[in-house]
């Protein structure tokens, strides 16, 4: 644990099965892409050091969750204590776009965040490298959705051709750090925890 006073940012990636959550993460962390599709089981964990606005360093702990229905029972555990939530849909898949709102609601229900209104989400429309003929979700629709979810940032990305991935994750890290610090500021230390002790009664005594 060499890195003292370095924030650890927990980032959750959510979205339907096959929208490219894992590919996005691998593109970002390892700058690699694999054509082969392998469904995530449960969750994947990756870490990356991030430099935010060139002056703050943090460690991003990315929790890449499984999109498949059967892993959803674990969601509760994954969402707890997240600093930022990334919602991913596939621009060639209408269903995945329609489900974004329910992913967000699901997250808010289980994550137990202190201020749901201001909790940072980032919306990513993935696979924009696809032929225009295959794209079924318009950028306009995405921007409208983002606005309706509380003006959350939206990015159109491609894990395959590395479009916008770094930019998106920079924004994700910035939002996460902001959230982390907001929470820290809201708290005031109070060390007035002295114990009242009366020596003449035995209530504090220990049995051994």
């Amino acid at each position: 644990m060499s890195s003292r006073k370095k924030n650890i940012l927990k980032v959750i990636i959510l979205g339907d099965s096959g929208v490219g959550k894992t590919s996005l993460m691998h593109r970002y962390v390892n700058d690699k892409y694999s054509q082969q599709y392998k469904a995530t089981i449960g969750a994947d964990f990756l870490t990356k050091e991030v430099n935010i606005d060139n002056d703050k360093v943090a460690t991003m702990q990315v929790w890449d969750t499984a999109g498949q229905e059967r892993f959803q029972s674990l969601g509760v555990a994954f969402y707890r204590g997240a600093d930022c939530c990334v919602l991913v849909y596939d621009v060639t898949n209408t269903k995945s776009f329609q489900n974004i709102k329910s992913w967000r609601d699901e997250f808010l229900v289980h994550a137990n965040v202190s201020t749901p209104e201001t909790f940072p989400f980032v919306l990513l429309g993935n696979k924009i490298d696809a032929d225009d003929s295959k794209k079924v979700v318009s950028n306009k629709a995405a921007q409208e959705l983002a606005a309706s979810l509380g003006n959350i940032p939206v990015f159109f990305t491609s894990a395959k051709t590395a479009i916008n991935v770094d930019t998106a994750f920079q924004e994700i890290a910035r939002s996460a750090l902001q959230q982390n610090q907001n929470d820290a500021d809201a708290f005031e230390d109070d060390f007035n925890d002295a114990i009242n002790i009366q020596l003449d009664n035995d209530t504090n005594s220990c049995s051994c």
């Binding site: 644990m1 060499s2 890195s3 370095k6 650890i8 927990k10 449960g42 969750a43 964990f45 990756l46 870490t47 460690t59 702990q61 929790w63 674990l74 509760v76 555990a77 994954f78 707890r80 204590g81 997240a82």
Partner: peptide, 27 residues
């Protein structure tokens, strides 16, 4: 939440993924 606090051995980079796994197993 799966964020690391302390490990006897191992640096952050190695440890953080394990923390996620531990958290998942317990959950």
């Amino acid at each position: 939440a799966g964020k690391p606090i302390f490990s006897m051995f191992g640096n952050d980079k190695d440890i953080i993924p394990y923390m996620g796994v531990i958290n998942t197993v317990v959950s």
